[in-house]
């Protein structure tokens, strides 16, 4: 647990021109993201954290607080405005992955990170079969043997409790819960050291939610993957994570052990969040 997998320093994401005073007038203290001088939206500012091997980090916050923006910047879906992110399995953490060329970013996405989106059809191609979607990821790792692809896909689907009869069905014909499991299989296909989960249980019914969370926990125990879990649901955070960051208006307002944050929140906003839990 003592070696970090990823370390992020001063991650920033701004929409708009930005001016010298954006930092002075936005954030939780002002309860706004919008700079009153130039109108830019400061989606993220001064976000720094480290994630260690086998650890699960939770990110909570209200809608629009920037929690998804963090993982999207790390997965290169969005381009970070500035910041330093070092991914230790890549070049032993020497490079800032946020400024790498596209081809290197693609390599990291395919080999060193897995992403699970809230909407499964963002991570999957609905017009391919479940097996085909997983094959896509395996093919990026230069596995060109049909038989190997089939057996590996089947094993991955089995791990996420997808019946093999669904392997050759088009993804768009599967139920939401099933799609989510296929998406998790795909994210795990190349055994990435880091898995990013963005609101994965939102939109699933409660019993399916519980089983998906259970499955994530089992997989994490088996593979010792490091994960970043984004959720607005404190139940998910409590169940899965070791450490938690609380985000508001693009800034971290509190950061610590999950138990501590949920039982003894320091920050006023976190207190509100914990108390408003159903």
């Amino acid at each position: 647990m003592n070696e970090p997998v990823i370390s992020v320093e001063g991650l920033e994401k701004t929409y708009g021109e930005g001016c010298g005073r954006c930092g002075e007038c936005t954030g939780p203290d002002y309860n706004t993201n919008v700079c009153r001088y130039c109108g830019s939206v400061i989606a993220l500012k001064d976000v720094s954290f480290e994630l260690y091997q086998g650890e699960i980090l939770g990110i909570v916050g209200e809608s629009g607080s920037g929690k998804s923006t963090i993982v999207q910047c790390l997965y290169f879906d969005l381009e970070a405005s500035s910041g330093l992110a070092r991914l230790f399995p890549y070049d032993r953490g020497k490079a800032n992955i946020l400024t790498l060329p596209q081809s290197r970013k693609r390599y990291i996405r395919n080999h060193l990170m897995g992403m699970v989106y809230q909407n499964p059809l963002l991570g999957l191609k609905g017009y391919f079969t479940s097996g085909g979607n997983i094959a896509e990821k395996l093919l990026t790792a230069d596995i060109y043997n049909y038989h190997n692809i089939r057996t590996r896909s089947a094993r991955l689907l089995d791990r996420t409790e997808v019946d093999l009869e669904y392997m050759d069905r088009l993804c768009r014909t599967l139920s939401g819960g099933m799609q989510q499991r296929v998406q998790i299989s795909k994210a795990l296909a190349n055994n990435p050291p880091l898995l990013l989960l963005d609101e994965i249980t939102t939109g699933l019914d409660v019993s399916v939610q519980a089983r998906v969370l259970d499955m994530i926990k089992t997989i994490q125990h088996e593979l010792m993957i490091s994960m970043i879990v984004v959720s607005h649901d404190l139940g998910v955070i409590r169940l899965l994570t070791n450490r938690t960051m609380v985000l508001k208006k693009g800034r971290i307002v509190e950061h610590g052990l999950t138990d501590q944050i949920l039982e003894d929140p320091r920050d006023a906003y976190t207190q509100l969040l914990v108390h408003s839990m159903l």
Binding site: S103, K125, A135, L139, Y144
Partner: peptide, 14 residues
């Protein structure tokens, strides 16, 4: 440009 041909291969797989 990025030799990102996995999807082409998936069409053969399918």
């Amino acid at each position: 440009a990025e030799k990102d041909y996995a999807r082409m291969w998936v069409s053969l797989y399918e």
